[in-house]
Amino acid sequence: MNVQAFLITFREAFEAILIVGIIVTYLKRIGQTRWIKWVLAGTGLAVLASAAVALIFQIVLTGYAAIGSQNYLRIGILFVSAGLLTHMILFMSKQTANMRGALESKFALLLTAGGALNMVFHSFLVTLREGVETVFFFAAISGGDIGKALQSWGALLGIVAAFALGHVVFRSTRKIPLGSFFRAIGFFLLLVAAGLIVQAVAVLQDMRIIGSVYTTAGGEIGHLYNLAWLLPEHPIDEAHYIADTGQHPLLPGQMGVFFKAFLGYSQSPSVEEFLIYWLYLFTVLAVLARKRKLAAQNTEAAPATSIHTA
């Protein structure tokens, strides 16, 4: 269980650190460090809320037996978090467009209170989501004894490793130019949001709340393809593949764990998971392209208007 606890806390903590770290780095880059303490406060409150969820899950909801009913909470958090991420992506793209002119004129870019509050709330929600998922996973590997999993050395080492890797990642971003930083971060957040939506759809299908246009002869939800030979979603899937085929996949299951958590990777997606993932990506990318086009047109029109007025 120690290894499983390590993988769980490392994955969940690292994902939360990435998102919160992106928000903090963003605020530093635009000179709005006064909001960082509120972002960190939101994160701290989420940690406390996650602990409360674990306590309620352990004592009131009878632990492992209640996991199925608590999936509704997970679905809601996944969808809301994906929505907030999408809003943040669009917000950052607008700020990036305005920032270019602001930097050239040596004026500081002002962050609106509404935008800052959105970041604070999102830092709370994304941390709470990871905390709740950790509770679910710990209940699963310990048969409902969450405290036993939390007290294992694997859980602590996972958190330490996540913070260490997060420190390395964000130290390296200091050398990235501002424009490139925002484009890269925006694209990464877009992939994360798409992955969250797909995870929610997968849970809905697992619970048989929604079906699929493609099912097997036995009535089970069918899959478009199976990439277990290339990259299993989890070390358990890797072990099953080895047992079934006698061969090892090209990439280890530990990599699949992170790709699934961060990018919504699925070794065998349903038709709905596949379509919704790409539909979301193309839709948001189209909106961003449209916003960039309008911003460019406004920039070109501004000098012409000034000349005409003169």
Rank of each mutant, 00 (worst) to 15 (best):
Q205H: 01
H240A: 14
G211L: 01
R208D: 11
F187M: 08
A200W: 08
I242K: 15
L189M: 13
N226D: 15
A228E: 15
P235G: 00
E233A: 12
L204Y: 00
G222S: 15
I197C: 01
I236A: 11
A239P: 04
G218A: 12
L190M: 09
P232D: 04
D237R: 12
A239D: 09
H223C: 08
L230A: 11
M207L: 15
T173A: 03
T215L: 07
V198Q: 10
A239V: 03
E238N: 06
A202G: 06
W229I: 12
L190G: 01
G186R: 06
E233Q: 07
I210D: 11
A200Q: 06
H240Y: 13
A194T: 04
R183H: 10
Y225T: 07
M207V: 09
T215Q: 07
V213I: 12
L224Q: 01
A184Q: 10
D206R: 15
G179N: 13
L230V: 08
Q205W: 00
E238Y: 08
L196T: 00
I236T: 05
F188Y: 02
G179V: 07
A243V: 05
L191M: 10
S212G: 07
G222R: 11
T215H: 03
F181Y: 13
L189G: 09
L189W: 06
L190Y: 01
F188I: 02
H240G: 10
